[in-house]
């Protein structure tokens, strides 16, 4: 057990040193597990935008990515949190690669941009409660 603790401490130390270095050498995420972006705008621009596009309007091909613009479904904050955390249909559960604060930030960003004006912000704890 002691060895496990020691290894965990080592891993944390390595992760910290890697993070300190990466801040100067690159601005994208490092590793396969987590998004490094902080704040709703950065998370939207680097994650959600991949499918929902910069203007939030989505796109259509053989299938479509729904528009987030003035979207009445976003009124229920829990719905947006659940989508990010669990995914839906083809949408990957991107919230699993974010911590609770990141999920809250990006949900709050989408619910207050693209013509959405839902000001009841979600919190880290709301996200934590929504995790499977």
């Amino acid at each position: 057990m002691k060895r496990v603790v020691a290894l965990a401490a080592l891993a944390a130390a390595l992760a910290n040193s890697a993070r300190a270095d990466s801040a100067t050498s690159q601005d994208l995420s490092k590793g396969y597990a987590k998004f490094s972006e902080q704040g709703g705008q950065a998370l939207y621009a680097n994650v959600c935008q991949a499918c929902h596009m910069a203007d939030g309007k989505g796109a259509a091909g053989a299938g479509r990515y729904p528009s987030l613009v003035a979207d009445p479904k976003l009124e229920v904050s829990g719905y947006a949190v659940a989508l990010v955390v669990n995914g839906q249909g083809a949408m990957p559960p991107v919230g699993r690669m974010m911590d609770d604060a990141q999920v809250a930030a990006v949900v709050n960003y989408v619910r207050t941009h693209f013509g959405n004006r839902f000001t009841d912000a979600v919190t880290k704890d709301d996200v934590k409660a929504a995790r499977p």
């Binding site: 995420s29 621009a45 680097n46 994650v47 690669m97």
Partner: peptide
């Protein structure tokens, strides 16, 4: 690439 970087590059 896969993982977070794949989303970032797609965006």
């Amino acid at each position: 690439m896969f993982g977070p970087n794949a989303f970032e590059f797609t965006a």
